[in-house]
């Protein structure tokens, strides 16, 4: 089976046109890959470009050069060059993303927010909801919140909705952007278990975890993003 995710010679900078066009390099020459069943954690000080890497992989950031190769339904897709339609299909079928913050949709109930990725893949709404309910109870989200839109939830509650939404599918690749940031110890442990289960299923995961305990528990490998820092390159 091909490696699910290969990043090769990726460069990224921002050009700030509103600030006289200054160019802010973000990362240079990023190279790594994530194998099936592996959880790679991005390490390094904050501001070094960890989140940017995740956003590039997910298509939210464009890249200046290089390739981001995703094994999508038995073919290789280069996210760096793919058209929007392909990226959307990759997101729907292959690559999931759990961000720190939930982008809430007005009026949609928490349980439907969680079930949506399954429904989008053509799974019957009732079954999708069942799965969603299972995940939410596992994450200890009080049942009375399930039918409410999550926009009024606390940070931790929103995050649990977000995690459930990210973990509900059988995506082969998962990007995790500090999914445990505002969780208590119990729920952190649940997430660690869930990540372990995904590993068992052969899901390739790439994440950012600031919590050392969680990091120790889930990481197969830590990738130091400082190695790709343009500042380092300049200094050298």
């Amino acid at each position: 089976m091909a490696t699910p995710l290969v990043v090769s010679e990726v460069f990224k900078s921002f050009t700030m046109h509103l600030r006289d066009g200054i160019k802010l390099p973000v990362v240079n020459d990023v190279n790594f890959s994530v194998a099936a069943g592996e959880c790679v954690v991005l390490g390094g000080p904050s501001g070094i470009g960890k989140s940017s890497i995740l956003k590039m992989l997910y298509g939210n950031y464009a890249v200046d050069a290089g390739q981001i190769l995703v094994n999508h339904q038995d073919r290789i897709v280069d996210i760096a060059k793919a058209d929007p339609r392909t990226i959307i299909d990759v997101r729907r079928q292959t690559m999931g993303y759990v961000s720190q913050f939930l982008r809430t949709v007005p009026r949609v109930a928490a349980i439907d927010v969680v079930a949506e990725p399954l429904v989008a893949r053509g799974i019957e709404a009732a079954i999708a909801k069942e799965n969603a309910a299972e995940l939410l109870s596992r994450l200890n989200l009080p049942r009375e919140l399930w039918s409410l839109p999550p926009s009024t939830f606390s940070g931790g509650e929103q995050q649990r909705v977000n995690i459930a939404r990210g973990f509900i599918t059988s995506h082969r690749i998962l990007l995790l952007d500090e999914p445990t940031a505002s969780l208590d110890a119990t729920n952190r442990r649940v997430v660690v278990e869930m990540i372990a289960a995904k590993k068992e299923e052969g899901v390739a995961m790439l994440g950012i975890f600031h919590d050392e305990e969680v990091r120790e528990a889930v990481a197969d490998r830590i990738l130091d993003v400082s190695a790709f820092s343009p500042r380092k390159a300049i200094a050298a």
Binding site: F14, K55, Y58, G59, N60, Y61, A62, P84, I87, I88
Partner: peptide, 8 residues
């Protein structure tokens, strides 16, 4: 992609 245009 909408996300790309708005985020980057």
């Amino acid at each position: 992609l909408t996300d790309r245009v708005l985020d980057d």
